[in-house]
């Protein structure tokens, strides 16, 4: 188990190094077209070959890794902050506010988002600028994911509000602010952190799904999902190197699962 964790950390470090310095490993930038060499098979210059318009696949994979691995944690941060705020308010305030926020979360959880996105996307013009597509994907992931962690935070805060030590803090004359910042917050932070670590691999996978459906990061910017679209209509047996993004995805998500903090948070 320990060896597996060390292996996972090494792999993630390697992926990070590749994603941080793609120019050291690859022949060109992700959008540089070698027009004389489209659809080239793997070679010394292009270890994964080139795509239909002659772009180096390795370069696109490394840049795509960077995009995917930045987007997911950023979106996880967004949704955890939203969850902390809304869930915290619900648990602290109770009553009508609580019921309103919990209902909103339940509603969010019950909407078939993927279907809705496909429909909305079908109605909109297809060409979105790459920067806008990144911003949209970030907002989608972040805002769609607030509901589940918000309910967990709400439950934690509500049980803390009923706990002996919070009542005791009142009995010692602490102001509401001190109760909030010094009694509740230190006990909610571990819960939020755990939610963050659960969200990161989940968001990597969701981002990939969106990309594969053409709903994610837009061309020419690469992302894992976008790269996997190349698999459409070809047999991976003929061109096994097209599977590289899928293998990397599985390795990274698997490694993350291995090294995630597993302790139960004390509440």
């Amino acid at each position: 188990m320990k060896a597996a964790r060390i292996g996972a950390i090494l792999l993630l470090a390697l992926v990070a190094a590749g994603a941080l310095m793609p120019e050291r490993w690859a022949a060109g930038r992700y959008d540089q077209q070698f027009r004389e060499l489209p659809d080239a098979p793997p070679s010394a210059q292009f270890p994964l070959g080139t795509d239909a318009v002659g772009r180096d696949r390795l370069s696109r994979l490394l840049y795509g890794t960077r995009v995917s691995l930045l987007l997911a944690p950023a979106a996880a941060l967004l949704s955890c902050l939203a969850a902390g705020l809304l869930g915290g308010i619900a648990g602290y305030a109770g009553g009508f506010t609580d019921r309103a926020i919990v209902s909103a979360a339940d509603f969010f959880l019950s909407v078939p988002w993927l279907l809705l996105l496909l429909i909305v996307r079908a109605c909109l013009p297809l060409d979105v600028s790459p920067a806008a597509s990144v911003a949209i994907t970030f907002a989608l992931l972040g805002l769609m994911g607030w509901a589940a962690p918000a309910r967990i935070v709400r439950a934690a805060v509500a049980s803390l509000m009923d706990s002996e030590f919070v009542l005791m803090a009142r009995a010692r004359g602490y102001s509401s602010w001190r109760v909030l910042l010094r009694q509740l917050l230190p006990n909610v932070t571990p819960v939020l952190l755990a939610q963050f670590w659960i969200a990161v691999p989940a968001y990597i996978l969701t981002e990939t799904t969106l990309g594969m459906l053409g709903l994610g990061v837009a061309e020419p910017l690469p992302s894992w999902g976008g790269l996997l679209r190349e698999l459409e209509g070809v047999s991976p047996l003929d061109q096994p190197y097209l599977l590289a993004p899928a293998i990397l995805l599985a390795a990274v998500v698997g490694s993350l699962q291995l090294i995630l903090p597993r302790e139960d948070y004390p509440v």
Partner: peptide, 24 residues
């Protein structure tokens, strides 16, 4: 009333451990 609690009137609880913040 807040300034009376804990300052002029102290309180000792029944379950001393549960009445301490576990993460401080």
């Amino acid at each position: 009333m807040r300034r009376v609690r804990g300052k002029a009137i102290g309180f000792v609880p029944q379950s001393p451990l549960a009445a301490l913040n576990p993460n401080l």
